[in-house]
Amino acid sequence: MTTMAVQPGRTESGAHLSRIGCILAFARREFRDAVSSRWFLLYTIAFTVLAVAVSFMSLAGSGSQGFAGFGRTTAGLLNLIMLVVPLMALIAGAGSIAGERERGTLLYVLAQPVSRVEVLLGKYVGLAAALCCSMCIGFGLSAGALAWRAGSVGIGAYVMLIVLTCGLALAMLSVGMLLSVVSRRSGVATGLGLFAWLVLVFLSDLGLMAGTIIFKLRVQEIFALGIANPLQAFKMAVIVNMNASLDVLGPVGMYASQTYGRTLPWLLASVLVIWAIVPLLIALIVFKKRGSI
């Protein structure tokens, strides 16, 4: 080695800027790819149509007296969101890394002056932005329907619903990316994503119901097990935000409201945040350590 060694890491801020620049470049590309892909279009259209339909159906028949239960719309939207949004985010996340790996493009981008962390974070940011945009369209048109037919009752809660839904999407995306990182082929990753969806949306709830009946679980146990599921946490957060308490959810909800009081929304939101961060962190570590391409 005859040439002068270049000192690694020129300046701290320069390195940070370059890091953010790379992440944004990946985010931008991921956003483009997602938005122009067929699955994304399909989900967005499905979500939008269903959201607007739910809004209209909830308003129909309530007359012109402004009964228009915003709450009712939300309850209807809740089911829809809990089905569609996790599916969308999990599949998007699952396809991200595994798909690139399968097409051979992953190696090519990794051969550029970028780090694996930047690649993964960039993809996460891009997909998250794409998902949030998709939901903005659905919620936006739905809000248009509400504005037209029902006025602005509960607009604050509606905004919170949007924020929480984006939180749910981020959490599910994070899980999807973890699945993507650990699976070698994109088919496997998608399969895992679907399975995770099934587990989170149906199986864990059904299992917990069975456990409640069979083992006669106590309310605090049911609550603890329940909020471990990000979907349940999301649902409870939406309901707390709408009704100021969880009494609607029976004894377990009353227990939660009584025990945690004002901290309950924060507790539930932090469950979502944890689900958005922890799987992504694990994905980062696995992606870095395994070094698969």
Partner: peptide, 23 residues
């Protein structure tokens, strides 16, 4: 309870603008 739809309409416009704008 007669409410105006204006704030909700504004919200709708804001959301759609966010989506279209980032696109």
């Amino acid at each position: 309870q007669t409410t105006t739809g204006a704030p909700m309409g504004v919200l709708a416009v804001v959301l759609l603008t966010i989506a279209c704008g980032s696109g």
